[in-house]
Computed example of a mutant assay.
Amino acid sequence: MQITDFSFFLNNLSEKPLRVLDAGIPNSKYIPLDLSINNKALELIDVSSSLRLGLYINTHIDENKGLVAFGGYKEVRNIYQRSNYFNRENVEERNIHLGIDLWCPAETPIYVPLQGEIHSFKNNTHYGDYGPTIILKHVINNIEFYTLYGHLSIASIMRLEEGQKFNKGDCLAFLGDPSVNGDYPPHLHFQIIKDIQGFKGDYPGVCSKDDLSFYSNNCPNPLLLLKNL
């Protein structure tokens, strides 16, 4: 299936927005957030500090009378420069974000947007990585794809089993805090993956410019499901 066909398929799974947070949160309470290299305000902030970055994000949410900040698909960011996991010697920098981030408090419940089953889960403990992560497998109209949920709480992956079934709207997990989520302000990294490529409990959520064409095709915009935030 070509990416245009797959994107059309995803976009037409539901006329209404699908939600990974409380469906009662109105669109007006989702506030766009720019964490790209083009945001000059970030030049005045130590973005390597989860405390200082979190203060910036929470202030942005409060000033706009929101509840959740969101954004980041294919956003070029500097916040990964603090971690050698994204910046290894003689390898092109990985700084292009491949999912949508939803910034809200630790322990916020995460819900299943579409019926699926547990493909895999793992605590990815590299500094700056996902921390606890769940990947769901979905098969709809004989089309198989995956959704990834990163930066969760430890408790979220304690009692899971591969193959465990979840219905749309079921509570899947809860957000972790900086002590377990890779040292970020609390948020959900939500990503769609067409071909999981053999990964288990993990999949690249940030890529280099050289690899962007491949990942753009394999990881389409999550707003195809979340729609008009």
Rank of each mutant, 00 (worst) to 15 (best):
1 M>V: 13
6 F>N: 07
6 F>R: 01
8 F>P: 01
9 F>P: 05
16 K>T: 14
17 P>L: 06
19 R>W: 03
20 V>C: 03
21 L>S: 01
21 L>Q: 01
22 D>V: 03
22 D>M: 02
24 G>W: 00
25 I>R: 04
25 I>P: 08
26 P>A: 07
26 P>I: 06
26 P>R: 01
27 N>L: 06
28 S>K: 08
33 L>E: 05
35 L>Y: 05
38 N>I: 06
39 N>W: 06
39 N>H: 09
39 N>M: 12
41 A>I: 07
46 D>L: 13
47 V>E: 11
48 S>H: 10
48 S>L: 09
49 S>N: 11
52 R>P: 06
55 L>R: 14
65 K>D: 14
70 F>G: 13
71 G>C: 10
72 G>C: 09
72 G>E: 11
72 G>L: 07
73 Y>W: 14
73 Y>Q: 09
75 E>V: 09
75 E>W: 08
77 R>E: 11
79 I>L: 15
80 Y>W: 14
81 Q>Y: 13
84 N>S: 14
90 N>R: 13
91 V>G: 00
93 E>Q: 15
93 E>A: 14
93 E>S: 15
97 H>L: 05
97 H>V: 06
98 L>R: 04
98 L>V: 04
99 G>H: 10
99 G>F: 07
102 L>T: 07
105 P>L: 06
106 A>W: 00
107 E>F: 01
108 T>H: 05
109 P>M: 02
110 I>G: 02
112 V>N: 02
114 L>F: 00
114 L>W: 01
116 G>M: 01
118 I>V: 12
119 H>R: 01
120 S>Q: 04
127 Y>W: 02
128 G>C: 03
129 D>C: 08
131 G>N: 05
134 I>H: 00
134 I>S: 00
135 I>P: 04
136 L>W: 02
137 K>W: 00
138 H>F: 02
139 V>D: 09
140 I>M: 01
142 N>I: 00
143 I>C: 01
143 I>S: 04
144 E>P: 03
151 H>Q: 03
156 S>M: 03
157 I>F: 02
158 M>H: 05
160 L>M: 02
162 E>N: 11
163 G>Q: 05
164 Q>R: 12
166 F>K: 06
171 C>W: 03
171 C>I: 10
173 A>V: 03
180 V>F: 11
188 L>M: 09
189 H>L: 07
190 F>G: 11
190 F>K: 11
191 Q>P: 09
191 Q>W: 08
193 I>R: 10
196 I>V: 13
200 K>E: 15
200 K>A: 12
201 G>L: 07
204 P>W: 04
204 P>K: 00
204 P>T: 04
206 V>A: 02
206 V>K: 04
209 K>A: 15
210 D>C: 04
212 L>K: 07
213 S>R: 09
213 S>V: 14
214 F>T: 11
216 S>M: 11
217 N>L: 14
218 N>W: 09
218 N>T: 11
219 C>F: 06
219 C>N: 13
220 P>R: 07
221 N>E: 15
221 N>K: 05
222 P>F: 08
222 P>V: 08
222 P>A: 08
223 L>F: 05
224 L>P: 08
227 K>D: 15
